[in-house]
Design a protein around this nucleic acid. Sequence first.
RNA 1: GCCGAGGUAGCUCAACGGUAGAGCAGCUGAUUCGUAAUCAGCAGGUUGUGGGUUCAAAUCCCAUCCUCGGCUCCA
Length: 651
Amino acid sequence: MSAVQSAPIAITLPDGSVREVAAGTRCIDLAEQISHQLAKKAVGARIEGKLADLRTPLERSVRVEIVTADDPDGLTFLRHSAAHLLAEAVTELWPETKVAIGPVIADGFYYDFDRPEPFSSEDLEQIEKVMRKHAGAAEPIERTEVPHDAAMAKVTGFLGQGEIYKAEILEGILAEPGSVVSFYRQGTFTDLCEGPHVAHTGLIRHFKLLSVAGAYWRGDEKNKMLQRIYGTAYFKEDDLKAHLHRIEEAARRDHRKLGKELDLFGQYDDIGPGLILWHPKGALIRNEIETFWRKAHYEGGYDLVYTPHIAKTTLWNKSGHTGFYRENMFSGMDVDGQEYLVKPMNCPYHIQIFNNRTRSYRELPLRWAELGTVYRYERSGVLHGLLRVRGFTQDDAHLFVRPDQLESELDRVIDFVLYILRTFGFAKFEAYLATRPEKFVGEPAMWERATKALADALVKNGLDYEVDEGGGAFYGPKIDLKLKDTLGRSWQCSTIQVDFNNPERFDMKFTGSDGKEHRPVMIHRALMGSMERFFGCLVEQYAGHFPLWLAPVQCSVFPISEDVDEAALQVADRLRKAGLRIDYRDASDHLNARIKEAQLAKVPYMAVIGKREAEAGTVALRLASGKQEVMAIADLVGRLTREVQDKSLPS
RNA sequence: GCCGAGGUAGCUCAACGGUAGAGCAGCUGAUUCGUAAUCAGCAGGUUGUGGGUUCAAAUCCCAUCCUCGGCUCCA
């Protein structure tokens, strides 16, 4: 510690109190002054809200928070340093490796490397060992800041060492006037890095390297493919264990695994990638969902339409799809000398219906919904189970509204989507409001109004949202709702898009009360998004334990032995007549075996009938939890039908 | 599309240059049982596909299709 300047500065702490310290006091010293305990737990600091190293000297009167391991941001420090530790180990093991970037991500960190040979899983173990060695040595992690002119020399230095990526990053930093160039060093490893980091590698004790994957330099496929090593790190061993356990748990809920186990759907080599075949049980669930969906739509003031899978190319020229969407469309087919294309969207068809005759302002809003099956070419590498496919059925609808109805209609849609999603038990969404991009069609004033209407509708319905500035389509602003899968990946299901473009393109109009022609506004919306993706999310959401109204088999009925067959058959019959889906298994297998089988098939209820029940006219109901309840047959029927009726969620 | 890993019986996996095997599921028979696997027998595969190397290929090589982990994109 060098001599500190005499002028005291005032540090504001999170509790609002102000503490005077000498200028130049480091964050760690400040922590020590507050309490020794705090200093011991400190991993970093937040200065005016910005994360900083513990050794950062305080030169001015600022607001400071000490970040401890318990602070959510504490992991940022740890994981960033873990990424450096990874790079330190890799460059020690294979000195010819070039390093790119190593940031912190949601559940851990990664580092991108350029190395001719691929990293194997054995390599990961070896790397971990070397990481542990350096962690054990508790190497101090030291920051140095370099003035721009000195940094310029570093660029050529990096290039000389073949560190082309670092050179490129540094050039980028230097291009920004007033930017700070900083390096972090631990042991013999130095990295160009903004920070922040923990004080020494000894804090990085509980970590694991998880996977290797290819990743383009700067995410651009025109650039070289690098090798990305993913890992995670925690302060506490239990947290790391819990994280690894979560990964295993997620794998157990994976819709692809459950889809196979429960015989819900399949993909076939002879059919083609990204094309789903719904097996009877999956189809039954889908049918229940669709029945609910149709009813909700009729009740919600929608009309349903059906449109064909193909249309002449001229339609897609008019809609603009052959211009801006061509690379996602399957190639055309010749029909009597006319080219037809398979539909990637349903909207042009719905517009045709609208344009079929003149429309009065009194008719609007028109709400037309369709479970429309569309096909989109997706690059082979992005396909993923049911969540990303090439053929899928959208729960699509187009709302044709007068401009003055925009606000009320958007509010109504948001309310509706929440009703639908909540029925399935989804409670956590990520909402994004995408605003006007640089290239756009329509009037800026109209854009502003529509964007505000979308935002108001979100707020009114109690949804927090993030603004995706400039992320809207060229034809209008939109709201996307995302659901999270068990692997923490979020999938966009619901989308609500305002469209100023198609009404123009198709010259849509309605006659207003003034007798003049007006342009309607169009809203595209999908609530579940696609049946495939939504179903995939549902399987994971429920871990295969569907709520009773969706369960392919709702109740298995087991006679304990042959002599109560008749009584058990009567129970099955009564349940079936009440509209329930029943699986009857006679006593040719032992009761235990039948129970096990039904349990593995995730059948919600099992009704067991033995001599006692047959005599009393009761059943022994086994719940999914394994608990049993004896009840009268009429009570059983009532209980199950009520549960179906209410669409109760599994507890 | 790109980088990497992988495709063996319906499912989960073994065999990794020398005749392809197990458990579960299936079928047949016996067992009639009180809440997660009764017993026995039988059957089941041109090892994703096509080529090549070899006396011999599931195994080695090439191509191709598909799946998986990511990059990028979207419902």
